[in-house]
Amino acid sequence: MKEPEMQFTMDGAPLDLDIGDLVIAGWTGRDQAAIQHHIEELVAIGVKPPSATPLYYRAAAAQLTTAPEIQVVGEATSGEVEPLVVQAGGRRWLGLGSDHTDRALEAHSVALSKQICAKPCANELWPWDAVAGRLEDLLLESWIEEAGGWVVYQQGTLAAMLPLAVLIEGAGLERLAANGGAAMMCGTLGAKGGVRPAARFRMRMSDPATGRRIEHEYRTTTLPEVA
Rank of each mutant, 00 (worst) to 15 (best):
K2P: 01
P4N: 08
E5S: 11
T9M: 11
M10Y: 03
D11F: 09
G12D: 12
I24R: 00
A25W: 13
G26I: 06
T28L: 09
T28H: 12
E41S: 00
L42T: 08
G46C: 12
K48I: 14
K48A: 14
Y56D: 06
Y56L: 11
A59I: 07
A59L: 03
A62S: 10
L64I: 05
P68L: 02
V73Y: 07
E82R: 01
P83E: 09
P83D: 12
V85A: 11
V86A: 00
R91K: 14
R91F: 01
L94Q: 02
G95L: 03
G95Q: 04
G95N: 05
L96P: 05
G97N: 02
G97C: 11
D99N: 10
T101I: 07
D102Y: 04
E106D: 14
S109N: 13
S113W: 05
Q115G: 13
A118I: 02
L125A: 02
L125V: 01
E136W: 03
E141L: 10
S142Q: 06
E145Y: 06
V151I: 12
Y153C: 04
Q154N: 06
L158K: 05
M161Q: 15
L162M: 15
V166L: 10
V166E: 15
I168F: 04
I168C: 08
I168N: 02
I168R: 01
G170R: 01
L173T: 05
R175K: 14
R175I: 10
L176Q: 08
L176K: 14
G187D: 07
G187P: 01
T188P: 05
G190D: 08
R200N: 11
M203P: 00
S206T: 15
R219N: 12
T220H: 00
P224T: 00
E225K: 12
